[in-house]
Simulated assay, not measured.
Amino acid sequence: SGCSGGGGTAARGPAPSPSGLVHYTPATGSPAPAASPLTTAPKECVKTAGMSVEQLTGYLKDLRSTSGDYQTKGLKLDSSGLNFTPEDIKRPCEAVSVKLAHYWVDLKKTHKADAISGARYEYAYTLIGTASHTAGPQDGRVPDTAPPDASVCRGTVSVAYLGPDIPLRALPYDLTLVDTTAPAPVKVDGDGVLSAIYVSPPNPDLC
């Protein structure tokens, strides 16, 4: 796992180059094997310890996942919470700390669906809580970060971010309501937002 706590900092080698890349060898519980011509070269990593909030935000936003697919995120929220799976060459040398906020989303139908338009709803957000969590440098899911379970007429929005806390006005008010509680990505305004998901309540048409 390697996502919780902050003490699993990987061993660092030579001083970072101007690009911020240094050599990185994951820490293990046993001595390193003797060098041989077949030994894999140390992976490169990015030293994040001296980054400002703006620099770290930009780095994490650009961090791609191991899938290599375009726009896939190395650090993102899913049904289990924060998931850290960056591609090897640009992973951080040490664990990074991010904030995570969960919100209740209470729904109230204001217009029933008809032949012309679909149903319309009002949304009321309530902050459940905000906490800081560490992720990396090894892959894994961060414990205790899963979104709360949705209930009747009450869904949740979860936001991973850096910098100032997210104001309620920045949360989405055009949610797509579906008959599934599987998390869906949503847009949350703010320069420090890294990932955000929405969990719909079951049977929103009944609200």
Rank of each mutant, 00 (worst) to 15 (best):
G2F: 02
T9R: 15
T9Y: 10
A11L: 13
A15W: 03
P16G: 01
S17R: 15
S17A: 14
P18C: 09
S19I: 07
G20D: 03
L21Q: 12
Y24K: 11
Y24N: 08
T25V: 14
T25A: 02
T28A: 10
T28D: 05
T28C: 08
G29F: 06
P33A: 04
P33V: 05
A34F: 12
S36P: 11
P37F: 06
T39H: 09
A41V: 12
P42L: 12
C45M: 02
V46P: 01
V46C: 10
K47R: 09
K47I: 02
T48W: 00
T48K: 05
S52C: 01
V53G: 00
T57M: 07
T57Q: 00
Y59E: 03
K61S: 06
D62K: 09
S65R: 03
G68T: 02
D69W: 04
Y70E: 13
T72C: 07
K76I: 08
D78F: 08
S79M: 11
S79F: 06
S80T: 13
S80E: 12
G81Q: 06
L82D: 05
N83H: 15
T85C: 03
P86I: 07
D88S: 14
I89A: 15
I89S: 15
P92H: 06
K99L: 05
K99Q: 13
L100T: 12
A101V: 10
A101T: 13
H102R: 00
H102Q: 11
Y103D: 01
V105G: 03
D106V: 14
D106T: 15
L107N: 06
L107A: 08
H111T: 10
K112D: 11
I116N: 14
I116F: 13
G118K: 07
T130S: 08
A131K: 15
A135N: 01
G136D: 07
P137A: 13
D139Q: 13
D139K: 13
D139I: 06
G140K: 08
R141W: 07
D144W: 02
A146M: 08
A146N: 05
S151M: 15
V152E: 15
C153V: 11
R154F: 10
L171R: 01
Y173V: 07
L175Q: 03
L177C: 05
D179P: 00
P183L: 11
V188F: 01
V188Q: 01
D189P: 01
D189K: 07
V193S: 09
L194H: 07
A196G: 07
I197R: 05
I197Y: 10
V199L: 12
S200L: 09
P201F: 08
N203Q: 14
P204V: 07
L206P: 03
C207D: 12
